[in-house]
């Protein structure tokens, strides 16, 4: 009731605002424990601001996230609020909603919250992988992606968890020794257990009850969002000259997750 009243008050404001309202109520439920402003607070906040002010702040958020994405380290909501949103925190949900829309419509990217507990965002390419594949521009490739691919593949093919010993041994066969400086990657151990972990491509956690201490690798939250298991399996089939379907378990997993992520992305488009 009261909401409808308020809505009629601000009917002059753009359509997107009303749309966002319904989304915000969803977000709010998940976020109840945090100091996220309520829908009514957002409405009241928006009434005090001009459309230009909100647009300006949205643009700042978009730029901040784009710049932060250069290092591929997830953006923390706390940092976003502290450095960019500042006094606009009452209308935070509206601004992040608009930023998401901008990323989707302007940049072909998707802003995803990978960690609903600590509120971290990453940017993911939202374009169809198959259409994006023949890149018109000869982009300089990042060799680290090759390394990451190997690691993620081994984890995936080994059922999701891999002891670090197996990982280091496999990498050693590829002339990448964690104990030695690699001419391409430098301090390989650091790249893998620190950089990839901070970027949320990998999880590197201690195995409980091991003596001496052992660690294991898993996929990080960013990989879940960004990496296609079906594509890995396909490449694997090419490499090992096997039918991807012969890895029954992996095939099933790849295609159950792939279909769900595809469905979600098609929804957005």
């Amino acid at each position: 009731m009261t909401q409808r009243k308020r809505l009629s008050n601000v009917q002059s404001s753009s359509q997107s605002k009303r749309q966002s309202n319904s989304f915000m109520t969803q977000e709010e439920d998940e976020d109840a424990t945090f100091t996220q402003p309520s829908t009514s607070q957002v409405q009241r906040g928006l009434e005090k601001l001009t459309a230009a002010q909100v647009d300006q702040k949205t643009a700042e958020v978009v730029q901040y996230i784009l710049v932060k994405d250069q290092k591929k380290i997830p953006v923390r909501r706390a940092d976003l609020v502290k450095h960019v949103i500042k006094d606009y925190r009452t209308v935070y949900p509206e601004i992040i909603k608009r930023a998401m829309l901008t990323f989707e419509q302007v940049f072909g990217l998707k802003l995803v919250e990978i960690d609903s507990k600590n509120h971290m965002y990453v940017l993911v390419n939202n374009l169809d992988a198959s259409t994006a594949r023949p890149s018109p521009v000869e982009r300089p490739s990042n060799p680290k992606m090759g390394l990451l691919f190997v690691i993620l593949s081994v984890i995936f093919m080994k059922g999701g968890v891999v002891r670090e010993n197996l990982m280091w041994n496999t990498l050693k066969k590829l002339r990448v020794d964690p104990g030695q400086r690699h001419e391409e990657f430098g301090d390989v151990r650091k790249v893998i257990t620190d950089e990839f972990v901070r970027q949320r491509y990998l999880e590197y956690v201690r195995v409980p009850h091991t003596e001496p201490v052992e660690y294991e690798f898993r996929w990080g939250q960013r990989s879940d969002m960004e990496v296609s298991k079906a594509q890995i399996l396909e490449f694997m089939g090419q490499l090992l000259e096997q039918d991807p379907q012969s890895w029954t378990q992996q095939y099933r997993e790849a295609h159950s997750t792939a279909s769900s992520s595809q469905a979600s992305s098609s929804n957005h488009r």
Binding site: D69, K72, N142, P143, L147, E226
Partner: peptide, 20 residues
């Protein structure tokens, strides 16, 4: 070598191209 692998593996990643 690693560039070659990275280029082939690119299609497995839906990485957002970083802007500079």
């Amino acid at each position: 070598a690693w560039h070659r692998l990275a280029r082939r593996a690119e299609c497995c990643f839906r990485t957002a191209p970083s802007f500079h």
